[in-house]
Computed example of a mutant assay.
Amino acid sequence: MDNKKSAFVGLMGVVLGIGFPTGAQSAEIIPVEVSSTQSQSVLGSTVVPYKEVTLTAQIPGVVKRVAGGVGASFAAGNTLVQIDDSQLQAKRNAVAAQIGTAQSGVTNAQAQYNREQMSPRSKDIGAMPGFGMPAMFDRLGTRQFASTFMGGYDDKTIRQADLENSRATVLQAQGGLQQASAQLQELDAAIGNATSTAPFEGMILSKQVEVGDTVQPGQPLLTYGYIKNKRLQSDVPSGLVAGLQVGMTVAARINSNFDTTAKVAEIYPLADPTRHTVTVKFDLPADVEATPGTYAEVHLPEGDSAASLFIPKTALFKGSSLPSVLVVKNGKSQLRLVRLGTDQGKDKVEVISGLDATEQIINDPPVGVVSGWMPPAK
């Protein structure tokens, strides 16, 4: 009896032209998959070096040497740019000569001060007498008489004045030496600033000068960075920053074809008042190969977690220009358009709208079926 009934249904299908499409036996009714996930925002970002500095000229002059071109690597301490310092070297030689002269002056002034302490000029019997008398008579007679009876001569006061004069000469000589030494230190610092060295192991990222260029203080020379480790830098809307913490891991995609993860490394404390965004840096894994400047995307959590709907990719209606599925209602199918979200891999896709969590759909519908079609009973 069953065989006759099946044959009759098949015959009627042939007569009416509605036979079962090829592949109908593989179609089945399945529920919509529900999963609790957190909505995410996808933001554009840029691959940047782990560390990056811009070296600028500290003194005016002509560029004498550039160590290499863009892409050249150097160890910490290597010379990158050399500015001609011949004029500074000439000034240094002149100041060095001044220091020698000043040192001689200090030595002579100190000797004169010591001499005044040991052998005061006020008591020198060979010096010109105070009253135009013979030196011995002047010291023993005239000066004693003037000091005792007239109060016009005090050899202690005169000796103190001579000592102070000698001490002042020593201090002046020492001041001249210190001034010359300070000039020498200033020139040494300027000569040191003529050479720009690598602050750390890294690579030249860009050059702004060439050999022979004349530069002024503050003018950029080159950009240097550490690229063994890389970061992503993104301007995050201030509303999303509250959901980020240093150390948390987020999904990332490099150059639209390489999926990886990134760890929040730095969140700037201030927001841009014009765009209302905050700069955030993310550390990439050490084994990720990406050229600085490459476009990247970061997936940041947005708000609280919510239920998301997923369906197999095979449930999508074949031959339709817009994504659609067959929804089972009251024992019949209805064609319904859906809006798709994030691709979950090879098998599943997220559905943003068009379906409810309680609905059922037909998986792997054959080509050419229409609303109302149902898979044959197994």
Results as ranks from 00 to 15, higher is better:
274 T>P: 00
179 Q>A: 05
349 V>I: 13
351 V>G: 00
364 D>A: 14
204 I>W: 08
378 K>P: 03
305 S>V: 08
200 F>M: 06
253 R>T: 15
18 I>E: 12
135 A>T: 07
14 V>P: 00
158 I>V: 11
297 E>V: 00
174 Q>S: 05
329 K>A: 02
375 P>T: 09
84 D>E: 15
282 F>K: 00
361 I>E: 08
271 A>M: 03
347 D>I: 02
151 G>W: 04
126 G>W: 04
303 G>K: 09
299 H>G: 00
369 V>A: 04
178 Q>N: 11
86 S>V: 09
83 I>V: 05
235 D>M: 10
360 Q>C: 02
346 K>I: 07
378 K>H: 08
361 I>S: 06
198 A>D: 07
355 L>T: 14
217 P>F: 01
322 L>W: 03
52 E>H: 13
275 R>Y: 11
81 V>G: 02
127 A>E: 11
260 T>N: 04
113 Y>T: 04
252 A>L: 01
45 S>D: 05
238 S>R: 14
308 S>Q: 15
290 A>R: 07
313 K>S: 01
317 F>I: 10
145 F>K: 13
77 G>K: 01
26 S>M: 05
67 A>H: 05
287 D>R: 05
301 P>E: 04
113 Y>H: 10
331 G>M: 01
270 L>I: 06
248 M>L: 03
324 S>W: 05
226 Y>M: 13
128 M>Q: 15
204 I>H: 11
60 P>M: 01
357 A>E: 13
189 A>K: 14
193 N>F: 04
303 G>P: 07
162 D>Y: 01
281 K>S: 08
311 I>D: 07
99 I>Q: 15
150 M>E: 10
77 G>H: 01
197 T>S: 06
47 V>A: 04
68 G>W: 05
